[in-house]
Design a binder for these strands. Structure first.
Length: 802
RNA sequence: GCAGGUAUGGUGAAAUUGGCAAACACGCCGGAUUUAGGAUCCGGUGUCGAAAGACUUGCAGGUUCAAGUCCUGUUACCUGCACCA
């Protein structure tokens, strides 16, 4: 009687759905457990096995926790706004709404075929009006609180996608969506003031349980540094400007200043600067470079001196030349720096190229060769001379600057404000109106959602205008404040908006009067365990922490940090060991695996293939190994014996395996959990039989991994109605995990010479004398001096003899 | 350049945190059954060696009765950030 997975898997998927066994209950005496996986972007390509691995981790934890008596919320949804859908619509002419609905349907059927225990009554689609209404609501709250604002600055722009991108979306100088080179463009765009939350985001990390490298990456991304702002006076005008430095103590070593090419002071004093032609030419050159080109030319410094425009060093009164160079960026600090070539390699390279003095102020290096960035005694530095401790000399200089009123201590962050608008169609409309009299006016809360209008043509406009700009009926409106004719903002929100708060909506997905009910938020929040990809650590994960913390600050949610625990799964690589991609043709479709081997095999394999956090290549033949595992479980029914208690032969194996599986699932060591069940299976096959009590426990601990086959066997053996609703996770007894006797190794001088069987609870001295009874050992220690004897309980005896 | 990580059989990987390295699985070899196998079952499988035995966790040292695990140095690869002042 072979296991007919096709029929049986379908049967149980239907039964679970009918019985609603995975619906989370809002009122329950059980302890709650909120497990969250990153909801997918429903792309046209459908899911691949990477999705399955990403969801299988917490799927197993959730199923186990239910059997352990938890009230589990394990939801799923769709993050459906985004460029790929819109680009597909442009190419084919099919409306994004239609494409999205089709894709969601496809994803849903794929997910259901794998038997995930999601609560399908709480599904979210970020493109639905009753959802994005609240996305817009949050935006308006931010606007109200001064966190959403417009500013004309240099922005990252993708010429291919024709959109402005945030820093997070253009890491490495490449567009996150199409991987084209990013260019800098001066543009008036919407920002969310995430920098105001930099410290809160840093502090929040201290109270959550994230993988260490996740915390670290976020810390680096926020990039807090401490230093000082110093004011430099200009000699030729009644003017001064500020710089930021982390080493104010090197102020005596300043031999030039550098401003970013776009520094506003240059235009202001164009009349004084004698070589404006040269300056303008350099600026144009810089503007043409892509981010990529800029970072490729790190070694070769370029720049132009501002002739007839110099600064005065505030600590020693020296006149200092000012240059412009693209190695100074407008987006960090003040857009101008003091250059200390002796102790900064970039300044050093620049000084060498332009023949500028290099003055040593910290002893210890050889400044004729390179900049010295280490510690040492201060020299040529007036009142700092002789100091050797970096912290002290920095503090002393900051005190001096503060006292003289020419500077003060300060901090800077690498993180920049979040460029928040996209000149595209398929996103949440930004609910702002431009009134000629009132200026920027928010849409009234009662008028939300501001609906995305129907359009015919999704192509973005030539000068980076949103397709919405062409829809007159949308653009033209009345000012919500004064009622006069006004125009709407036509840009939409970026892809990350909807996903920044979706975990809150799962808690109360159909609420029409609030983003979620406060009582329910109190019951379910925060998310107990969130699993997702490493690629989102400095994007979605930081954005959503920011939104959530804001919502907490305005009293919309009752808890500070959204996620108590965050883990990440490793990629599944193609069979060729390279990242799966359509262009390489090495993508594995979960449907095909389910067709050939069944969902239980797929689920088991993605967790058995290796360390959950590590990347691992797909291996068709290893899938077969898991198929054998499933089939061997089925065949246990042929060796079934009676028995209401564990048999003597299998008792310790049962307890050991239950312990291992119970503990390993919680620490995401799914591979070893499955391995231990395989070991148990080998033991049972050697034993030749399994009794009902043993089978019952085995089905329960395998159920989270392979729910269909275990459910079917549960029913056939009459253990109860339905495992998913009636099953109770088996207990293990620590004491019963140990066998009566144990094989230990006997070492002589650290080398294994024999193995002996002893009682598990044998005393140290008895174990050692037992070891000495062994013929081999006797011969080895014959005539030698025994220096030391060690017994490690249940492990080994080591005799040191000379 | 900065930060973090990884390195163990032919392959994916285990190793109670200092205590028998290679669990579990794949692959391979041999056998049984079979008209047949992407089926099942049994046995073998780190390397060298006929064997006794010796050697073995990227490389070189060190600590220890005992090191994959701790310390020092070094190499390679991976990931993230990157002219961040």
């Amino acid at each position: 009687m072979d296991y007919n997975f096709k029929q049986i898997e379908k049967k149980w998927q239907d039964k679970w759905e009918q019985a609603g066994v995975f619906h989370a209950r809002d009122n329950s005496d059980k302890p709650k457990f909120y497990a969250l996986v990153e909801f997918p972007y429903p792309s046209g390509a459908g899911m691949h096995v990477g999705h399955i691995k990403a969801y299988s981790g917490l799927e197993v934890v959730s199923r186990k926790r239910r059997l352990q008596g938890y009230n589990v919320l394990f939801p799923i949804g769709f993050d459906a706004y985004g460029l790929p859908t819109e680009n597909y619509a442009i190419k084919t002419g099919v409306h994004p709404r239609k494409v999205t609905d089709m894709n969601i349907e496809k994803f849903t059927s794929q997910l259901k075929r794998v038997g995930f225990s999601f609560d399908w009554t709480r599904v979210i689609d970020t493109t639905q009006e009753d959802y994005y209404k609240w996305t817009q609501w949050i935006f308006l709250k931010m606007f109200e609180n001064g966190l959403a604002f417009r500013d004309k600055t240099l922005v990252n722009y993708c010429p291919s996608c024709k959109v402005v991108l945030s820093n997070e979306d253009s890491q490495g100088g490449k567009c996150d969506i199409c991987h084209s080179d990013i260019v800098q463009k001066s543009k008036d765009v919407w920002y969310l003031r995430i920098t105001e939350y930099a410290d809160k985001l840093l502090e929040g990390l201290e109270e959550v349980d994230y993988l260490p490298n996740i915390k670290l990456q976020q810390e680096n991304w926020i990039g807090k540094s401490r230093g000082a702002f110093v004011t430099f006076a200009v000699n030729e005008a009644d003017e001064s400007f500020r710089i930021y430095t982390t080493r104010p103590d090197t102020l005596f070593g300043v031999t030039f200043m550098v401003m970013g090419p776009e520094h506003p002071m240059i235009d202001k004093y164009a009349g004084i600067i004698k070589n404006m032609d040269e300056v303008k030419a350099y600026r144009e050159e810089c503007a043409k470079k892509t981010e990529f080109e800029r970072t490729q030319l790190v070694k070769d410094k370029t720049g132009v001196r501002l002739e007839g425009f110099t600064a005065k060093n505030p600590v020693n009164g020296k006149d200092i030349p000012i240059y412009i160079s693209d190695y100074v960026m407008m987006g960090y600090g003040t857009g101008a720096i003091m250059a200390v070539p002796a102790h900064d390699q970039r300044d050093y390279d620049f000084a060498k190229k332009f023949g500028i003095d290099i003055i040593e102020v910290i002893k210890g290096g050889d400044i004729s060769v390179e900049a010295y960035t280490g510690d040492g005694e201060m020299v040529n530095s007036g009142f700092l001379n002789g100091m050797t401790n970096k912290k002290d000399s920095i503090a002393k200089m900051i005190d001096y600057l503060t006292e003289k009123g020419i500077g003060e201590g300060g901090v800077q962050y690498k993180m920049k404000d979040w460029a928040f608008n996209r000149q595209r169609y398929w996103g949440e409309p930004i609910p702002i109106v431009y009134c000629p009299d009132c200026g920027m006016v928010p849409v009234d809360y009662k008028d939300l959602p501001l609906k995305l209008p129907e359009v015919e043509n999704f192509e973005p406009g030539q000068d980076g205008e949103s397709p919405l700009a062409k829809i007159e009926s949308f653009v033209n409106c009345k000012c919500p404040k004064c009622g006069k004719d006004a125009k709407r903002e036509t840009d939409t929100m970026p892809q990350w908006a909807g996903s920044s708060w979706y975990f809150l909506r799962y808690i109360d997905p159909h609420n029409s009067s609030a983003l979620a009910d406060m009582d329910k938020l109190n019951y379910w929040g925060p998310v107990d365990w969130y699993n997702g990809g490493m690629e989102h650590v400095t994007r979605h994960l930081i954005y959503s922490r920011f939104w959530h913390r804001f919502l907490y600050d305005i009293g919309a949610v009752p808890f500070k940090e959204p996620y108590l625990k965050r883990t990440a799964q490793g990629l599944i690589l193609g069979p060729d060991g390279v990242k799966m991609s359509k262009s390489r043709g090495n993508v594995i479709d979960p449907n095909e695996v389910v067709d050939v081997y069944g969902a239980d095999v797929l689920r088991t394999y993605v967790l058995f293939m290796g360390d959950y956090e590590q990347a691992a290549p797909w291996s068709e033949s290893s899938v077969k190994g898991c198929k054998r595992f499933i089939d061997r479980i089925w065949k246990l029914q042929e060796m079934l014996a009676d028995g209401d208690e564990y048999s003597k032969e299998l008792s310790s194996s049962m307890h050991k395996t239950i312990k291992k599986v119970t503990e390993d699932i919680e620490s995401m060591k799914f591979n070893t959990a499955i391995a231990s069940v395989m070991t148990l299976l080998n033991t049972i096959y050697d034993n030749g039989k399994i009794n009902r009590a043993e089978l019952k426990s085995l089905l329960l601990i395998v159920n989270p991994f392979a729910p269909h086959i275990t459910e079917e066997m549960w029913e056939r053996q009459g253990f109860g109605k339905m495992l998913a609703s009636d099953g109770v996770w088996p207990e293990f007894d620590e004491e019963k995990c140990v066998d009566d006797t144990v094989e230990i190794a006997v070492q002589i001088n650290g080398k294994i010479r024999a193995k002996i069987n002893v009682a598990t609870d044998i005393s140290d001295s008895d174990a050692i004398s037992a070891a000495k009874q062994d013929e081999k050992v006797k011969a080895e220690i014959e005539g030698k001096n025994i220096i030391k004897e060690i017994y490690v309980k249940g492990r080994l005896v080591n005799i040191v003899a000379k």
